[in-house]
Amino acid sequence: MTAADPLQPDLARDLIDRATKAATHRAARVRNHLDAVLLGQGRHSDHADTKVLRRILAEHGWPGHRLVGPDAARAAWSIALHSDDAPDFQRAATILLERAVQAGDARIDHWAHLHDRALITNGHLQEYGTQLLLNPDGITLCPLRAPESLDERRATVGLPPITVALETVRLRYTVGHLSEDAPTVVLAGAA
């Protein structure tokens, strides 16, 4: 085993597999390519992924770079980020991720995204402008605290200015690719 090998490679593979499947499903949902059955299956998978991550957090704390490697740590972050049906879990995951960041075992920009998502999920204003709404009319920021100092806060967590981030998201999710009846989707995309 080298210094770069994760301590839990099986756990790493499971997290990556779960996050990859969920991302594929979300991409189809954003483009409104899912019927009711597939939407239901995706929700069931999201709940199962949250349950698995909840168990991992209870057993290991945040699955950071040392435990599972950078790719699986990103996968764990993605699962937590999309656990909107479990707001208490999302808040707890944010705390554990923050501790991992402080220990140098996770990325601060991941924490900023999860922090914002937990705030939005719980009906509060986001801090870093990472949470967006995508609908057929375009892309907008979810409600934001103190917009006048947003770029300063973003810089403290390694995020680019909001204008750069929004342009990147607009290029990725061009409105022309969405149908008129596409659902409004919350994106964690203003990196």
Rank of each mutant, 00 (worst) to 15 (best):
5 D>I: 05
52 V>F: 00
129 G>K: 06
135 N>V: 10
188 A>E: 12
140 T>R: 02
15 L>Q: 01
45 S>L: 10
48 A>N: 14
22 A>P: 12
79 I>D: 01
50 T>E: 03
33 H>T: 15
3 A>Q: 15
104 G>Y: 05
137 D>P: 04
124 H>R: 01
105 D>W: 00
129 G>W: 05
95 I>R: 13
119 L>Q: 03
2 T>I: 05
49 D>P: 00
46 D>Q: 13
109 D>N: 15
30 V>E: 05
58 A>Q: 08
113 H>V: 15
176 G>V: 13
10 D>H: 12
126 Q>P: 04
3 A>C: 10
38 L>H: 14
186 V>C: 04
165 A>E: 03
133 L>Y: 15
39 L>E: 06
54 R>P: 11
148 E>G: 14
109 D>V: 15
128 Y>N: 01
139 I>R: 08
63 P>N: 01
166 L>E: 05
52 V>D: 00
187 L>C: 08
150 L>A: 13
77 W>L: 02
151 D>S: 13
42 G>F: 12
17 D>V: 13
173 Y>E: 07
168 T>A: 13
57 L>M: 10
87 P>H: 01
12 A>S: 10
185 V>W: 10
6 P>A: 00
129 G>N: 06
89 F>D: 06
22 A>Y: 13
185 V>Q: 13
22 A>I: 12
67 L>Q: 01
171 L>C: 15
164 V>C: 11
67 L>P: 01
24 T>H: 14
164 V>N: 12
54 R>N: 14
158 G>V: 09
33 H>P: 11
77 W>T: 02
149 S>M: 05
73 A>T: 01
33 H>E: 11
141 L>M: 11
186 V>H: 03
128 Y>A: 02
